[in-house]
Computed example of a mutant assay.
Amino acid sequence: MSDGLNDARAMRVAEIMSDFRNLQHYLVQLRATPTAEEYYLEGYSLLRQCTAEAQTILQTPFSSNSGGATGEPERERQQLRAIITDAAVRRFQCQRAYLRAHAGLRWMNSRNSILRGQKPNASHLSALQQIDAILRSELLATSDAYVENTLRAQDTAQGKWLNEDPSLAQIQQVLMSRS
């Protein structure tokens, strides 16, 4: 028997997918134009990686063994729960890529501010090493738990229904099964 929460589940799917779409829109708009000498620097490589991750997430097919909606409330409940999990995993992946890309953009802007259109030279070395270290530190701080906490805090602040959102452990399990 259905528990009467299918409307709440459907609303949750729409909320998660809206967040996912917004994150994808941001990631697709990333533009960095490094010179040939800068192309393989850590920050620029990171930005390309985040863009590629966003494309991979979009290309990952939805796989559900719950079948199509047939008007049966229990089957609809199962299908909606599967969609919530899939959408939450994709949103998690996009949020992680977004946070990493944002760190890369800060690195790029700091680098441009330090260089001010000049070629890197010995006078820039210390400052450039410092921003490289900051980037690495930010990336280390962007753990799965941190990513999940940013999403959960945002959803909680907006008063969203989170009863059937997957836990971080469930998200990690789905991600491991896809790799």
Rank of each mutant, 00 (worst) to 15 (best):
D3V: 00
G4L: 10
L5T: 03
L5W: 03
N6I: 06
D7K: 14
D7A: 13
R9V: 09
R12W: 03
R12C: 06
V13P: 09
S18M: 06
S18K: 10
D19E: 13
F20W: 10
R21I: 06
H25C: 02
L27W: 01
V28Q: 10
Q29D: 13
Q29V: 00
Q29A: 14
A32H: 15
T33H: 12
A36C: 01
E37K: 09
Y40F: 12
Y40I: 01
Y44F: 14
Y44E: 11
S45D: 06
L46Q: 09
R48P: 00
Q49E: 14
A52C: 03
A52H: 07
A54Y: 02
A54H: 03
A54W: 02
T56E: 12
T56M: 09
T56R: 14
T60M: 09
F62V: 09
G67L: 07
A69I: 09
G71L: 06
E72S: 03
E72P: 00
P73Q: 14
E76G: 00
E76T: 03
Q78T: 02
Q78I: 02
Q78D: 08
A82S: 15
A82Q: 15
I83E: 15
D86Y: 07
A87P: 01
V89G: 03
R90C: 08
R90H: 11
R91D: 11
R91F: 04
F92L: 03
F92Q: 04
Q93L: 08
Q93I: 01
Q95T: 09
R96G: 04
A101Q: 07
H102I: 00
H102D: 15
H102W: 12
A103Q: 05
A103R: 08
G104T: 12
G104Q: 13
L105M: 13
M108V: 15
N109Q: 14
S110C: 04
R111Y: 11
I114K: 07
I114V: 09
I114D: 03
Q118Y: 04
A122W: 04
S126Q: 10
L128I: 05
L128Y: 06
L128K: 09
Q130W: 03
Q130H: 11
I131E: 09
I131V: 15
A133V: 05
I134T: 15
I134K: 15
I134A: 14
L135A: 05
R136P: 00
E138K: 06
E138C: 01
L140E: 13
A141Q: 14
D144I: 01
D144R: 05
D144T: 02
A145F: 02
Y146D: 03
Y146S: 10
V147T: 12
T150K: 06
T150C: 07
T150R: 07
R152Q: 10
A153N: 14
T156M: 10
T156D: 12
G159N: 08
K160P: 01
N163P: 00
N163R: 14
D165M: 15
A169N: 09
I171L: 07
Q173E: 11
V174D: 04
L175T: 02
R178C: 01
